[in-house]
Design a protein around this nucleic acid. Structure first.
Lengths: 120, 120
DNA sequence: TGAATACATTCATAAACCTGAATATAGCAT
DNA sequence: ATGCTATATTCAGGTTTATGAATGTATTCA
């Protein structure tokens, strides 16, 4: 790509846009705007196989757009690239950090804690 | 891509970002923000072969990001996608529509007209 | 320790993309 | 008509990407 050229601003930004230019990855990134999210949550929301989600998360991680944190069995991902966040804001409106959507049947802490609280 | 899924917003936006996610195309799009530009101008500024520039312009055209207008021997391209323009503004600062940069040795009307005027 | 859970990685193949070379077309000038 | 100029398209190769299948790893729980 841009063979033999020094790394210019276009090369750098193009790489960002290219990584974002994939429907599953874009969907994941949009989710992550609401806050740190575990893989099981992403898996349920997108309805894709776990391995596939994990592959896409790896692409995002390798590109430096997201970071992961391990907590027990779960791994939580968060969005760390400022420009990616800005592009998402542009496409999907201002940042919504109102916390995760609760999913039925999702066993992750975020979801089950709330269910327990509700059933109480 | 996102096989079998209905076309959702992520698919649509991902397509936009993917097309923009290429250094030469991104550079071209950035140029076009200054105004309608002929191919010879783009060619000189990027220092790439004509055929290659033309191929990338075709990609941009097929994706609906740019449109072309023929005038004599020249073909002029302009940026017509609003969201693409917004992304460019985000990355490279607000829109600069101050007209084309004049290039020495460029024979297109934009350049030669000015030269003639200056030499007068 | 062994089993279950949550996630990651590797591998393989088909599809898509990149890009150079060659060739085609369309308009203008003579 | 002929040739020149500006641009477009086609073709072919190599490389990358997409994605499913299989497998690996780490942590918790019993």
């Amino acid at each position: 790509m841009y063979s033999g050229d020094p790394v210019n601003k276009y090369t750098k930004h193009a790489a960002l846009l290219k990584v974002m230019g994939h429907p599953v990855r874009l969907h994941i990134l949009d989710m992550l705007r609401r806050g740190e999210t575990c893989v099981c949550h992403i898996e349920r929301l997108l309805g894709k196989r776990q391995a596939y989600i994990s592959q896409q998360l790896m692409v995002l991680r390798d590109a430096g757009l997201v970071e992961s944190r391990k907590d027990g069995l779960q791994v939580f991902y968060s969005l760390v690239d400022e420009q990616a966040a800005e592009v998402l804001d542009l496409l999907y409106g201002a940042h919504d950090s109102s916390g995760l959507e609760i999913l039925e049947g999702c066993t992750c802490p975020a979801c089950s804690t709330v269910l327990i609280a509700e059933i109480g």
